[in-house]
C-alpha cells in the first residue's frame, strides 16, 4: 500500500469538499442545530435551579442518528460516482485502485470530522457554561462515537457506489440503506420479537443490536452520557448477556470498527476486479 499516494488523494478530496462548500454547509447546519438543541434544552431546566445535561445530550444523539448516516452516505456516493472525466483521469494515474478508494474515504472523513467538530464544539461551549464541567470526558467520547458512525456509513457508501453503475442508482440505494438502518431495521426486530417466546425475544433483540450500527451508536451513546441503568431492567439483562459493562463496551466498539472496515474491503475487492 502506497501511503503517500493515499494521503495525497485524501488531502485533495478534503480540499475539494471544502472548496465546493459541502463541508462549510454541513458545519453551519450542524452548528445551528446543535446550538439550538443545547441552548433550548438547557434553558427550561435552568429556571428551577438544576441542569438536565443528559436530556440535552440525548437530543444531540438524535441529531447524530438522523443526520450523520445520510450525510456520510450521500457524500461517499456523490464523490465516488463523480464525473466521468475526473475519475478516468484519477484511475489512469500510476496508483492502485484500493489506494484511491481509501484516500477518497479518508478525505471525506476529514471533512465530516471538521464539520462535526465545529457543531459539537459550539454545543460544548453552551453546555460547559450552563451545565458545568462534570461531563466533559463523556462528551468527548460521545463526539468520537458520532464520528465512528460517520466512518461506518462512509464505508457503506463506498460499497454502494462501487456496486451501483450510475450515480442515480447509487443515490437511490443509499437512500434505501439510510431508511433501512435508521428506521426499518428496528421496527422489523421489534415486530419479530413479539412473535418469539419471552426468553428468546430478549436474546434475539440483544444479538440484533450488532446488526445495526445506528443502534450500536445509540445504545453506547446513551450508556456513555447516562448510565446503563437508563435502560432499566433491559439494560441489566443486556449487561448480563454480554458479560459486564467493560466487555460490552469493547464489543460494541469492536463491532462498529468491523462495520467500518468490512464494507470498505468488499468495495475494494469489487473495484479491483471491475473493468472501468
Amino acid at each position: 500500500m502506497d501511503f503517500s499516494a493515499v494521503s495525497t488523494i485524501a488531502s485533495l478530496e478534503a480540499k475539494t469538499n471544502i472548496r465546493n462548500k459541502w463541508t462549510l454547509l454541513l458545519a453551519v447546519a450542524f452548528g445551528i442545530l446543535s446550538l439550538a438543541i443545547s441552548y433550548f434544552g438547557l434553558v427550561t431546566a435552568g429556571t428551577v435551579g438544576f441542569q438536565g445535561f443528559m436530556r440535552t445530550a440525548a437530543s444531540l444523539l438524535n441529531l447524530v442518528l438522523y443526520l450523520i448516516p445520510i450525510v456520510s452516505l450521500s457524500m461517499a456516493t456523490l464523490s465516488l460516482t463523480g464525473e466521468k472525466g475526473a475519475s478516468e483521469l484519477l484511475f489512469s494515474q500510476p496508483v492502485g485502485r484500493i489506494e484511491i478508494l481509501l484516500g477518497k474515504l479518508l478525505g471525506l472523513f476529514l471533512s465530516i470530522w471538521t464539520a462535526t467538530l465545529f457543531g459539537f464544539g459550539l454545543a460544548g461551549v453552551i453546555i460547559a457554561i450552563k451545565a458545568g464541567t462534570s461531563g466533559l470526558t463523556r462528551y468527548l467520547g460521545f463526539v468520537a462515537l458520532a464520528q465512528l458512525l460517520a466512518l461506518v456509513f462512509l464505508s457503506l457508501g463506498a460499497l454502494v457506489a462501487t456496486l451501483a453503475e450510475t450515480r442515480a442508482k447509487a443515490s437511490g440505494m443509499s437512500l434505501f440503506l439510510w431508511f433501512f438502518f435508521v428506521l426499518f431495521y428496528d421496527l422489523l426486530v421489534m415486530g419479530i420479537s413479539f412473535v418469539l417466546r419471552e426468553k428468546m425475544a430478549n436474546q434475539f433483540i440483544f444479538v440484533s443490536l450488532f446488526g445495526n450500527p445506528v443502534d450500536m451508536v445509540r445504545v453506547s451513546g446513551l450508556m456513555l452520557v447516562g448510565d446503563v441503568s437508563i435502560f432499566g431492567a433491559a439494560g441489566a439483562a443486556l449487561m448480563k448477556f454480554l458479560g459486564g459493562q467493560i466487555i460490552s463496551n469493547l464489543l460494541l466498539i469492536a463491532a462498529l470498527l468491523l462495520w467500518a472496515s468490512v464494507p470498505f474491503l468488499v468495495a475494494g475487492r469489487w473495484l479491483r476486479r471491475r473493468d472501468l
Binding site: A58, L61, N62, L65, Y66, V182, L183, Y185, D186, L187, M190, S193, A201, N202, I205, L209, V214, D215, R218, V219, L222, I230, F231, G232, A233, A234, G235, A237, L238
Partner: peptide, 10 residues
Amino acid sequence: RLRLYLFSPA
C-alpha cells in the same frame, strides 16, 4: 425489553 429502543427513530 423495548426500553432498549429508547430515543430510537423507530
